[in-house]
């Protein structure tokens, strides 16, 4: 098996008296779809935030491509999130003032791609996710399923090496959820991106190659254990 892209080692993180992570470890290999499973409050979202450099663990290390995220400056972590990572959340991730096309083009523009080129690539991704027709609409004017697909397009437009998806289907019905998952995993496989998928639904997790269970802030990664 090739070298892991993202490694978490014994992460701990508390919010006041609440322990969200109490010794979580896992590995993400290039191009794999990994499901983080667990009941609500198990710490899986916090684990995802730590993996993505959004939150800092109180102790433990997160290595991305061999680099310890804690040694990176805020600007470097931002750049990493901008260029190497993509994000899909449950809801509320699209900028309401911008059109869907502009939302998808946003990460490219943040990475200093010219507007015309960014919007051309954004339009391609919208088509790929079967939402070309909403390009000119604002997020408030599209359905939940369309909005999530726009969000997936936005997460993938920079061709990231890791896509973090936190309950991407949580606010959708089964049919729309399946569609989002199908398009997300297919697009990720096409571009070779790894996906870290947080979900509590087995049917959603079934789109993954491997699952890691989070319980009481601890992981049970059968692969690591073995």
């Amino acid at each position: 098996m090739n070298a892991p892209l993202l490694v978490a080692e014994d992460l701990h993180r508390s919010f006041g008296p609440t322990r969200a992570l109490a010794g979580a470890s896992l590995r993400v290999h290039p191009g794999e779809v990994l499901a983080l499973m667990g009941s609500s409050g198990s710490g899986k979202s916090t684990l995802l935030h730590c993996l993505a450099g959004i939150a800092r663990p109180d102790s433990g290390r997160v290595l991305y491509a061999g680099r310890d995220l804690a040694t990176l400056s805020d600007a470097e972590r931002s750049a990493l999130r901008r260029e190497e990572f993509g994000f899909v959340f449950q809801f509320g991730q699209l900028v309401p003032e911008l059109t869907c096309l502009e939302n998808v083009a946003l990460p490219l523009r943040l990475a200093r791609v010219g507007r015309r080129e960014a919007e051309r690539r954004a339009a391609e991704w919208l088509a790929r996710l079967e939402v070309a027709e909403v390009a000119g609409k604002r997020p408030g004017e599209v359905s939940g399923g369309q909005g999530q697909r726009v969000a997936v397009a936005r997460a993938l437009v920079t061709r990231p090496r890791v896509v973090f998806a936190d309950e991407p289907t949580g606010a959708l019905d089964s049919l729309n959820g399946e569609r989002v998952m199908r398009l997300l995993t297919a697009a990720a496989r096409d571009t070779g991106a790894a996906v870290v998928l947080v979900t509590h639904e087995a049917r959603v997790a079934a789109y993954s190659d491997r699952e890691v269970v989070v319980r009481d802030g601890r992981t049970r990664d059968l692969e690591v254990a073995a």
Partner: peptide
């Protein structure tokens, strides 16, 4: 019981992955 659950979940998910792939 959690161990039984974890082992069984792994097995179930393996089958569910097959089904998801066939479905696709």
């Amino acid at each position: 019981a959690a161990d039984v659950l974890d082992v069984q979940r792994a097995e179930h998910l393996r089958m569910m992955r097959d089904l998801t792939r066939r479905k696709r």
